[in-house]
Design a protein around this nucleic acid. Structure first.
Ligand SMILES: [Mn+2]
Ligand SMILES: [Mn+2]
Ligand SMILES: [Mn+2]
Ligand SMILES: [Mn+2]
Lengths: 221, 221
DNA sequence: ATTGTTAATTAGGTTGGGCTAATTTAGTAT
DNA sequence: ATACTAAATTAGCCCAACCTAATTAACAAT
């Protein structure tokens, strides 16, 4: 069982399959093509190779799944990415919206030594600045509280923001300006056709549905 | 004048031409092939492309030179590399012999923002842990004292080590064990057929010629 | 059952950066 | 001048990761 070292593309395919699988029940070629910004035939081709390497399983015309080993690699890349994001924010003064882009490139080239060094330095954190869970060194996902998108609540209730499900820089800037960031507690007031009304400190905002779906929260006990 | 963003290979070619030019009068295809660990026809091919981009000049069967813009790119990569080496050593506890390898991969993917962040954090250093000069943000090489290889001295004299001209990990480990590292002062005793005899603190060592040529020193006033 | 629509695949091509084997050139030694 | 040697170049291939255009498969609607 050797490790033939994957290409950056291959790592990105595995990572993206993993991330899509967290949300959708099934991962289509098209989903992948969209996320990876390539055309569908490229996906078909690459998936064939990953299949031959036993990193994914593919039922043609159905969808694609990670194998155990494929999943481990995805988690390894995800760990790099999320540790890097937190490191850039904490130690190099990057702002919330800048970290993703830089981590996207660095994730493929840092060594295990680098990974361990920054994890140590930061005290083995479990979540990155977007609230995304950081896989452990053993490549297990840490326990995460049960989160629900902000637009799925029904009645007035206090909630704590757990995770922001986008990397769009303008959305992130908007959210940070509104203090809608992981760790902050807000009050869910009501959900009407115009959007979700929330109270942050003493201000009450309307959060459009398109934005609210990206804000995952847990209820405050 | 756009910046079409070079490939990692292309950046390495330019960087290597620059480094060879510091030492040799002329840069041959073969020198490049050796350093870049590729076969000579690959070099001929790549040099043609770099020539077409006006980054190098090439007189066939003579040698290759950087143009002004080619040199700027080489210095940019070199700045990334050397800042990274120092950063890894200072902030992530890398040892002397580990930094080169990691920097070799990171140099191509960090952003200008990352470069500026670590340069700031370290107070805009002028030399990396091997004593290699770090180009400034404006891509000028800093003034460096006049250095001579340890094996070129003639008479007993005190010298300060300025720069170590290798990235070989075993040699670097040897040297650090012997305290033969940039900044340290030693005494040059004599050069005989067996090698160079030096005094470090209270110990007197014989340094083989092959090693001594890599240790560049300035004379102590 | 037939048709239409959309997703997926196949066929075939491009580009970048390598390679080996064969050839040419420059420079040296006889 | 001639012959040899080593460096450089050319010719021709390979492989990864893309692409477009054409084809096929799945499935819903009539
Ligand atoms: Mn990536
Ligand atoms: Mn994140
Ligand atoms: Mn490099
Ligand atoms: Mn160095």
């Amino acid at each position: 069982m050797e490790k033939p070292r994957l290409s950056e593309s291959q790592e990105d395919y595995l990572k993206e399959i993993f991330k899509l699988r967290e949300v959708n029940e099934t991962v289509s070629m098209q989903d992948l093509a969209r996320k990876l910004d390539v055309r569908p035939p490229s996906v078909t081709g690459m998936i064939k190779k990953l299949c031959a390497m036993d990193l994914v399983e593919h039922e043609p015309y159905k969808g694609v799944l990670l194998t155990k080993t494929g999943e481990k690699i995805a988690l390894e890349v995800l760990r790099h990415h999320r540790l890097l994001e937190l490191y850039l924010a904490r130690h190099l003064n990057y702002s919330w919206d800048e970290i993703h882009e830089e981590a996207e490139r660095l994730e493929h080239v840092i060594s295990e030594k680098f990974e361990a060094a920054i994890a140590d330095l930061m005290g083995h954190p479990t979540h990155d600045p977007h609230g995304d869970p950081i896989p452990t060194a053993e490549l297990e996902l840490p326990d995460t509280p049960n989160l629900m998108p902000l637009n799925t609540f029904k009645k007035r209730i206090g909630v704590t923001i757990g995770r922001i499900m986008t990397q769009d820089r303008d959305i992130l800037n908007l959210l940070s300006r509104l203090e809608l960031i992981p760790g902050n507690s807000i009050a869910f007031i009501k959900n009407d056709s115009a959007g979700i009304r929330v109270k942050v400190d003493d201000n009450q905002y309307l959060v459009p549905h398109t934005i609210a779906r990206l804000i995952w929260c847990e209820t405050v006990d």
